[in-house]
Write a protein that binds this DNA or RNA. Structure first.
Lengths: 337, 337
DNA sequence: GTGAAAGCGCTAACAC
DNA sequence: GTGTTAGCGCTTTCAC
């Protein structure tokens, strides 16, 4: 207790030098098979674990990757993290987690206090009101790579991975149209966020393709919460022309919307169709079940992590923007009869 | 780019020694106010960030705490992490996250590969089938403190923080009884887990208090998933005596149970009452809404973290077991008319 | 194939 | 109040 075994201890036991031990442990350079075997044995015996602080200091990297995101208490982000975790674990990297609570100030404070010496790379999903992203550019300039996922800034040149927000939205709205809905509203997310804009564009283009009306009052920007979905919907129900379908930027808002509709005794599907985005498990719990564009959250996580490792391993790795398609899951909320 | 500022750089600029810089930066010992101000200024100018690898090496600790838990993709655990994160952030600690996927093998591998030199303490919720917990005892013996939360082992002497599983279950079942349900079943979690046993005991004692029958076939152990809740319920419906209420070990199982009941057109509340445990947001999304014992997930996280810091700061801190009460939230699933 | 020694960035005696 | 120096555990030239 108290004293952890070091390579010095191993060296002493075998009466060899620390450098040999170091080499043996990492099976690098040419080291005698016998010596190596002995080193391994003693290491095991002494319960030796490398001190990553020391390794990091000596080698100039840390074995850590950081994740910065708005929240973890929802299906999407927690699943992304699980995907990241899986890959990082296999590569022997540790994950250091930072939660911004979707606050730009917190995001700033986190990035400014981040000791870049302790993080080999960063995976980030920016907060809603991060119009300026210079704090991330600074980090990149300091030499530590960043891969953005989901909520990506558009003025930084680095790898990004996203679900197919544009076609996802397009397909969701097209599905609504194919099912006979014609007055389609969109309850959107925070204005300014790239994916919010892309989903909006998909919505608009689908309407245009089918010559359906676009009404300003049918497009409402607000937050991403269930509550926002609820209040947006009440607002929609006050419109001069009441829509017959709602495309929500995510499932939480779609669910809020359904709650509002149910409270007004509006029959979902028949009177007003609702389609969401995510495929949150809650979409099968609510009744009627929610039609939604499923997001490949786990894959987004593992793909982001994969790209990050490429950046870490070869600097000047050409950045990539990866777009992973979603999958429309048709359920009851868009069924008319 | 490339070169990060070090205390040496600061020292060079001001033509003073590194130790003065070091002292000034940490505002420890007595250092001239003027010198200190200058150091701070240059540090800011050079965008100096301490290299925690080096600090860790020199001081023998790491600024990191680890979290090991089964999953993060559910309301409870992700909220606990958020609570931990909040406290850790304020104390300037980083969080290193490990997910076991509820696999004992993974848990073992994580703990065995854990370099204890890089973690000052550990917060853990054990996996379902971790009957043996010697791997955690080993870590404690190596000198790094552990605080367990929620899923705690009972053969390790260290701080633990839990919701009040026993009284929570007792109160939930008592609520059922007060509402006239008399044939109450319990769909439990994995056998062997402390909290599973405590909730079972609360259930049993409530029945006993009111002289209600305990039937073996009404108590089903299985996993914690919604699917398990569903299949457990189908099994219950096959019983010779069909229960008129179900107490589920958690909300996910309760929801699975409700799905099963709904598929059989059984009117929840009226015919069969259901009560859960957690207060997962899904409990208000499902219809009828689910009565549940709310768990103080966030507080569990921050309290665990607080205790861990106490252990870290004074070794031989007497361990504490903290039990945080829950709160019964009555909704429709236990309303008879 | 192995050892000696310098050094990664920082802290902490110990001098003065 | 400040400087000098050793050392944390490891990697890595450079010798041999």
């Amino acid at each position: 207790m108290g004293h952890l075994a070091t390579i010095k201890d191993i060296a002493k036991v075998l009466n060899i030098s620390v450098s040999t031990v170091s080499r043996a442990l990492r099976s690098t350079y040419d080291v005698n098979q016998e010596t190596k075997a002995k080193v391994m044995e003693v290491a095991l015996q002494l319960n030796y674990k490398p001190n990553y602080n020391a390794v990091g200091l000596a080698k100039g990297h840390s074995h850590n990757i950081g994740i910065i995101l708005p929240w973890i208490t929802n299906y999407y982000f927690s699943t992304v993290i699980t995907g990241i975790q899986e890959l990082a674990y296999n590569k022997g990297y540790n994950i250091v987690l930072f939660v911004t609570n979707d606050s730009h100030e917190r995001e700033l404070s986190i990035t400014q206090n981040l000791s870049t010496a302790n993080i080999d790379g960063l995976l980030v999903s920016i907060s809603s009101n991060s119009d300026s992203c210079s704090h991330f550019q600074n980090i990149i300039d300091e030499g530590i790579p960043i891969v953005f996922f989901d909520r990506v800034p558009n003025n930084i040149k680095t790898s990004k991975v996203m679900q197919d927000d544009y076609y996802g939205a397009f397909a969701a709205v097209e599905h609504l149209i194919e099912n006979g809905y014609t007055k389609i509203a969109h309850i959107a997310g925070h204005q300014g966020l790239t994916f919010t804009e892309k989903r909006l564009q998909g919505y608009l283009d689908a309407l245009e393709k089918y010559n359906l009306p676009v009404r300003k009052e049918w497009i409402i920007y607000s937050g991403f919460s269930q509550e926002c979905g609820e209040s947006d919907t009440y607002q929609l129900l006050e419109c001069e022309q009441i829509p017959d379908a709602i495309f929500a930027v995510n499932d939480r808002k779609a669910i809020g919307s359904m709650m509002a509709l149910k409270s007004k005794n509006i029959v979902i599907g028949k009177e007003i169709g609702v389609v969401g985005f995510t495929n949150d498990p809650a979409s099968t719990i609510i009744s009627p079940s929610l039609t939604t564009m499923a997001e490949p959250a786990f894959d987004i996580g593992s793909k982001s992590c994969e790209l990050l490792f490429k950046h870490i391993n070869k600097k000047n790795f050409i950045y990539e923007e990866v777009i992973i398609p979603g999958k429309l899951i048709i359920r009851e909320s868009t069924t008319r009869e």
